[in-house]
Computed example of a mutant assay.
Amino acid sequence: MQSVSESLTFTIPLGLKCRTQAEKFSRKHSNPDKRQQVYANTLAVTVVKFYLHCIGWETEWEASLSYNPLMQGLMDVADLQVKDLGKLECRPVLASSQTVFIPPEVYENRIGYIAVQLDESLKTATILGFVRRVTNNGEIFLSDLESLENLVSYLHQIKQSEVLKKGVSLNQWFENLFENSWMALEELFSNINDKKFALRSISSKREGNVARAKIIDLGLQVGNQSVVLLMAIAPYSKDQVEILVQLHPLEGKTYLPSNLRLNLLSELGENMQEVVSRSNDNFIQLKRFRGYSGEGFNIQVSNGDFTIKEAFFI
């Protein structure tokens, strides 16, 4: 861990706009101590907001507790919502302090804590670094802060984990952005011109088909076999995508295992479609379906006690 003196920091002047916003919020509170607290917290938030904008991250301050005068009065809060990621807590630090204090009320629902040092004149602020979680009863030594050099990669890690939680983004496929487990058909099939794929006619409205495939390990319950889940998409209208889902045996195998179920489920788990393989099926597929941008669904493959489910969103 680098010390603060060796780490990347970010210093900016606290301009009129920044100080005016802090004054505006502080005036809503009659208690002098609370006014001072809100003033310092607001300065810290505006500095972090500016910094994140500089490095390409969108924020939603209006959706944060620190923007709400009622919550300012009830809590010692300096949160800043980072769009689609979560909240960063922006804690002000006096120039003479060696630690940053994290109030108990902000221990949870934060993706990180950023220390912002304010000079004595409150005309300059320096972002010293951050921590990912709270330890030591909320008191963090400035020498233990993680460098800002690591903040961008940390935010990207969170973004990726949120994408994985939500599922596979099909719209990204149109931009040739694919998850590592989803491979080009040529990597898994030697003859993708076979009639069974029927991908060229997925959409009668527009061209622009994209198809990828993923190996599904069926596990011990199905004799350690694997199959290939194939997903093909095409634009149908401005807001709709047409989707084709197939299940194939691995290259070198002629038929799928029998009684293998392929299901389309809604986001809430409602069964929308089902097809079951027979002993002589060399592939099975769901009826083509369409979805609107922002919608999600699940594809499930099962056989007896074995079930695997993959989440997708458009």
Rank of each mutant, 00 (worst) to 15 (best):
N137M: 09
W182P: 11
Y154K: 00
W173M: 05
K287P: 02
I299N: 10
S121G: 00
R278H: 10
C18L: 10
D84Y: 03
G223R: 02
K159G: 12
N31G: 00
S121A: 13
D119W: 07
W61N: 02
Y236V: 06
L142G: 05
K165H: 13
I12L: 09
E60P: 08
R19I: 10
K165P: 10
L260N: 05
T11W: 04
F178N: 14
F174Q: 15
Q117C: 08
E295A: 12
N193Q: 13
S293M: 12
E120H: 07
S64P: 12
P104A: 09
F197R: 03
S169T: 05
P103H: 06
L16P: 04
E242W: 09
E270W: 00
D144A: 08
L148T: 02
S237V: 06
L244R: 15
T124V: 14
L170D: 00
L142Y: 03
R290A: 06
N68W: 01
L88Q: 04
V152R: 12
L250Y: 08
R27F: 08
L247F: 05
L85H: 06
D84A: 02
L264D: 04
D239E: 10
Y39Q: 06
G138W: 12
T126D: 01
L85M: 00
I299E: 13
K24E: 15
S258V: 14
A40Q: 12
F306G: 04
N180F: 10
D76F: 05
P69Y: 08
V93L: 04
E187D: 15
L218T: 00
V241I: 15
L155A: 02
V245T: 11
G129Y: 07
N298Q: 15
G86K: 02
P92R: 02
I111Q: 04
R288N: 15
N282R: 10
P235C: 07
E89H: 09
I158Y: 09
N282G: 03
V168I: 15
L16Y: 07
P92V: 06
L74Y: 06
V134S: 14
T307N: 13
I140C: 11
S293C: 11
E146I: 14
G294M: 06
I114M: 09
S7P: 05
F312W: 08
G167T: 12
K24L: 15
L170P: 03
G56Q: 02
V116H: 03
E274S: 10
S153P: 01
K214L: 13
E108C: 09
E62F: 11
H29S: 03
A232R: 10
F197N: 04
F189R: 01
